[in-house]
Amino acid sequence: MPATSRRHLLLGGAAVSAGALLTACTGNEPQGQDRAPAGSAAPAAGDKPGTPVTIGFAGPQADHGWLNAINENAKRRAAAYSDVTLEITEGSNDTAAQIGQVQTLINKKVDVLVVLPADGKALTQVGLQAMRAGIPVVNLDRIFASPQAYRCWIGGDNYGMGLNAGRFIGERLKDKPDATVVELAGMDSLELTKQRTQGFDDALRNYPNIRKVARQAADFTVESGQAKMAQLLQAQQKFDALWNHDDDQGVGALRAIAQAGRKDFLMVGGAGARSAMDAIKADDGVLKATVLYPPTMAASAVDLARALGQKKGIGGLSELEVPASLTLYSAVVTKENVDEYLPTGFH
C-alpha cells in the first residue's frame, strides 16, 4: 500500500489481552454482564459511566483493508461508551490535510486526541501543539518523532511479526535438510518493512538447515502482490515456504500461486485479514498461518483516551497512570486457533 498508509513499532503486550486489560478499568457495562467476543469492540464488564469525554480521532484514508478496520474499530468502541463522544475526521493520507484536521480538533477543544499519522515525523509538530494546549495525545501506531508529542503510544510490533513468522516456518521445516524459503515483502521505502524482514531473518538464524533464496518487495496491494508473486514463482521453481508481509497483497499472491498450479510449499501471511483466516480454517491451500498486526489497537486507543480524559489508570496494573507505551503481540493464527481470532479478522 502507499508509503503514507501504514504502520510502525515499539514495546510488549497481547492484542486481545491488552483490550481486556484496558476495559477492566474503562468499561461502562454492569458488573456480571457477559463479555462480548474478541474483536467486537464492545467493552468488557467494568466501571460505571464517568465524566463525559470528547475524543478527537484523526485516522488514515481507508484505502486498505487494515486501515479501514482501524477506523471501524475506533467508531464501534466509542459508540459502546455512553460517556464518550467521538469527533472523527474524514481521514487523509496527505500530511498537510491531516495536520489541518488535527488543528481543527484542537480548536474544538476536544478532551483527548487519538492520531494515527499519515507520516509520524511530519505530524510531530501538531502533536506538540496539542500537548502544549493541554490536550493529551494517544499516538496510534505510526510514531511521532518526539515523545513530547504524545502522552501514550499504542501500536503493533513489526519486528515481532517477522520473528514469529520465521519461528513458525522454522519449526515446520526444522527436520527438512536444505530447506529453502522466499519472502514477499512490503514496501522497502518503509521502516516497518525492514523491521519485518529483520525479525524474519533473525528467527531463521536458529535453523541452520534453512536458507532464504529470494526476496521480492511489493506495495501492499492485491495487484502488486499478484505481479511480484508471479515473478518469484517464475524465478524459483522449487522452495519450501513463503513469508508474505501483508494479507491484502496476499490475495494477489494466492491468485498467482493458483494460476501457476503450485502446491509444493507452505505460506504464512501477515496482518490478520478475514479472507486469510477463512483460508487457514478451510486448510485446502498453501496458506497455513497469518501473523497478526491487530487493527483492534484503535479500539484500545479509544479505551486509553477515555481513561486519560477521566484521569484513570488501567485495571490490572498497580500504577495510577496510563502507561507511556503499549505494543501489541503478533500472535500466529493457525488452523488450531483460528476460531478464537476469526472475530478480529478484517475485510
Rank of each mutant, 00 (worst) to 15 (best):
residue 3 A to S: 15
residue 6 R to G: 12
residue 7 R to H: 13
residue 8 H to F: 13
residue 11 L to K: 11
residue 14 A to K: 09
residue 14 A to M: 10
residue 17 S to I: 12
residue 18 A to I: 13
residue 19 G to P: 00
residue 20 A to F: 09
residue 21 L to W: 04
residue 30 P to I: 09
residue 31 Q to W: 13
residue 32 G to D: 12
residue 33 Q to V: 15
residue 37 P to R: 08
residue 40 S to M: 09
residue 42 A to D: 09
residue 45 A to V: 12
residue 47 D to M: 11
residue 53 V to A: 04
residue 56 G to V: 04
residue 57 F to E: 00
residue 62 A to P: 07
residue 64 H to S: 12
residue 67 L to K: 02
residue 69 A to N: 05
residue 70 I to T: 06
residue 70 I to F: 12
residue 77 R to P: 03
residue 79 A to I: 10
residue 84 V to M: 03
residue 84 V to Q: 00
residue 85 T to R: 14
residue 87 E to T: 07
residue 88 I to D: 08
residue 90 E to C: 06
residue 91 G to C: 08
residue 95 T to P: 05
residue 99 I to D: 02
residue 102 V to P: 00
residue 104 T to L: 07
residue 106 I to H: 01
residue 114 V to D: 00
residue 115 V to M: 02
residue 119 D to N: 15
residue 122 A to C: 07
residue 122 A to H: 02
residue 122 A to S: 14
residue 145 A to Y: 04
residue 148 Q to M: 12
residue 150 Y to Q: 02
residue 150 Y to V: 02
residue 150 Y to M: 08
residue 151 R to H: 12
residue 153 W to C: 00
residue 158 N to L: 08
residue 160 G to H: 01
residue 176 K to T: 15
residue 178 D to Q: 14
residue 182 V to I: 15
residue 183 E to I: 11
residue 186 G to S: 14
residue 189 S to H: 09
residue 200 F to M: 08
residue 202 D to R: 05
residue 202 D to K: 07
residue 208 P to D: 10
residue 211 R to M: 11
residue 211 R to V: 09
residue 214 A to I: 05
residue 214 A to K: 07
residue 217 A to G: 13
residue 223 E to I: 10
residue 231 Q to K: 13
residue 232 L to N: 01
residue 234 Q to E: 14
residue 235 A to E: 14
residue 236 Q to L: 09
residue 238 K to E: 13
residue 244 N to S: 14
residue 245 H to Q: 14
residue 245 H to S: 12
residue 246 D to F: 07
residue 247 D to A: 09
residue 247 D to S: 10
residue 247 D to T: 09
residue 248 D to L: 14
residue 249 Q to R: 09
residue 249 Q to N: 12
residue 252 G to V: 05
residue 253 A to M: 10
residue 254 L to T: 07
residue 254 L to A: 12
residue 257 I to E: 03
residue 257 I to A: 04
residue 258 A to F: 08
residue 259 Q to H: 12
residue 261 G to T: 12
residue 262 R to W: 10
residue 264 D to T: 13
residue 265 F to N: 03
residue 265 F to I: 11
residue 269 G to F: 01
residue 269 G to S: 13
residue 269 G to L: 08
residue 270 G to Q: 08
residue 273 A to K: 06
residue 277 M to R: 07
residue 280 I to P: 02
residue 286 V to H: 09
residue 288 K to G: 03
residue 290 T to M: 07
residue 301 A to M: 10
residue 302 V to Y: 00
residue 303 D to K: 05
residue 303 D to A: 11
residue 305 A to L: 10
residue 305 A to Q: 04
residue 306 R to A: 10
residue 306 R to L: 15
residue 308 L to K: 02
residue 312 K to F: 01
residue 314 I to P: 00
residue 317 L to K: 06
residue 326 L to E: 01
residue 327 T to D: 08
residue 330 S to N: 10
residue 331 A to Q: 09
residue 331 A to V: 11
residue 340 E to Q: 14
residue 341 Y to H: 05
